[in-house]
């Protein structure tokens, strides 16, 4: 039986969750706000969106293009962060769990006392 509670309390797991959240939460807030701002401006200020930047190219079309850029940049950024930072941390959690199950004491509580199997 895997001791899920013990893994959840391990430093490795806390570190993984903390690091991932510190990226995902601000990124999610940012993209939702940026997207909803676009929708709200389109709804409430259609004339502004229809203004010309250069001939038939409008403010609205340019604003829309920045949404594409945002999606691609956030997508690639998260992919990179995951490969370099989150995946290695997740691997550590899995390794530590495997070692613990094999009888090797590796989990250390927050107060630094070792947990005996």
């Amino acid at each position: 039986m895997t001791d899920w509670e013990r893994i959840e309390r391990s430093d490795e797991f806390r570190e993984l969750v903390k690091r991932r959240r510190s990226f995902v939460v601000p990124a999610t807030i940012f993209f939702l706000v940026y997207y909803m701002a676009f929708i709200i401006v389109a709804g409430y200020a259609p004339d502004f969106m229809g203004e010309s930047v250069y001939q038939g190219l409008t403010v609205g079309y340019c604003y829309a293009l920045t949404q594409f850029v945002m999606v691609f940049v956030l997508g690639l950024w998260y992919l990179r962060k995951s490969d370099k930072e989150f995946d290695p941390l997740a691997d550590k959690v899995v390794e530590a769990a495997a070692e613990f199950e094999a009888g090797d004491v590796r989990f250390v509580r927050k107060d630094d006392t070792e947990v005996k199997a």
Binding site: Y35, M36, I39, A42, G43, P46, M49, G56, T58, G60
Partner: peptide, 23 residues
């Protein structure tokens, strides 16, 4: 037809509501 929004979706609150459901 218009290069500006508001032709197919003339009600701003409806546009916001739709945008939320899509995302």
């Amino acid at each position: 037809f218009s290069l500006a929004p508001g032709t197919y979706l003339p009600k701003p609150l409806d546009t916001v509501s739709l945008g939320l459901a899509l995302v």
